[in-house]
Structures are given as C-alpha cells and as structure tokens.
Amino acid sequence: MQRGFSIVTKIKAVIFDMDGMLIEAKDWHYDALNKALNLFGLEITRQEHQIVYDGLSTKDKLIMLSRDKGLSQSLHEFINDDETKIYDGNSQQFLQTYVPP
C-alpha cells in the first residue's frame, strides 16, 4: 500500500449538510459579506439579505450591489476574496471549537 493513501483508511464518515440542519452557514456568509462591505461604507440588512440576496453567489450579490447601491465593480475581486477569508476563518473557528481532533 502506498503511503499517500493510508489516510483513507482512517476516515469513518463524511457528512454533507446541504440544508443548514447542522450548521447555518448562510448566517456566516451574511456576516462575512457585511464585514467586507463595511470597509467601503456599505451594508445590507439581514432582512434585505434574506429577501434579495439569499441563495445567490457572492459574485452575483456584488453585481447586484453595483447596480443597486453603486458599489464600484473594481472592488468586486477584493470584497469577494475578503469575504472568503472571513468565512473560512469562521469555519475554522467552528471546527476547532466543536469537532474533536
């Protein structure tokens, strides 16, 4: 057996949470996007996010924010990257807190 494949034998289960039953990740996305937008003086309310932006990709949300709120398109890449870093940090913090090593 090759060394690179030995980790596969240690995996006991893989869980996919597609409906928010285990983790409500859309709240993390909302918070992360707002933190990134706040750098440029923009914010969307939780209600606005649920009604207008819920379920859309960050890319699509940014396109709509440019159209509806005047967000400069030149900021899209930066905000998208920043939102991803914030979201990933929240995910890592959750895993370190609630998932045993």
Rank of each mutant, 00 (worst) to 15 (best):
K69P: 07
T45E: 01
L22N: 14
I51Y: 13
R46K: 11
I51P: 09
F78E: 04
D68P: 04
T45N: 00
I11L: 10
D54N: 11
H49C: 01
I23L: 12
N80T: 09
V8I: 02
Q50K: 10
I79M: 03
G70Y: 06
F5D: 11
Q96I: 08
S57R: 08
L95T: 14
D60W: 11
L56K: 14
F94W: 06
I86Y: 04
I11W: 02
V14R: 03
T97N: 07
S66H: 02
L33P: 00
T45V: 01
L75T: 01
P100Y: 11
G55E: 01
H49Q: 08
L22D: 10
K69M: 07
F94V: 06
A36T: 05
F94A: 06
E77N: 05
Q93S: 13
Y30P: 06
K35N: 01
A13Y: 03
K61L: 07
M64E: 06
L42H: 15
T97Q: 10
Y30Q: 05
E24W: 05
V8A: 02
I23N: 09
W28T: 05
D81I: 05
E24H: 09
T58W: 04
L39K: 12
Q96K: 14
I86T: 00
M64C: 02
N90Q: 15
Q96W: 10
I23V: 15
M1K: 05
L75E: 02
F78P: 01
V14M: 08
D60E: 12
D19V: 15
M64P: 07
K26Q: 14
Q93M: 06
L33G: 06
Y53E: 00
E48P: 00
E43V: 11
V99E: 11
I86P: 02
K61N: 10
K85Y: 01
G4V: 03
V14E: 04
R67S: 12
I11D: 10
R67P: 01
K35Y: 06
F78S: 03
S91Y: 13
M64W: 08
A32F: 12
I15A: 04
H29A: 12
G20D: 09
Q93D: 12
F5S: 13
N80M: 09
G70C: 06
D17P: 15
L75G: 00
T45F: 01
F94S: 02
Y87K: 00
K35H: 05
A36D: 01
K35T: 07
R46D: 00
D60Q: 12
N90Y: 15
S72D: 11
L42F: 15
G20K: 03
Y53F: 00
P100K: 13
Q73Y: 06
Q73S: 10
T9G: 08
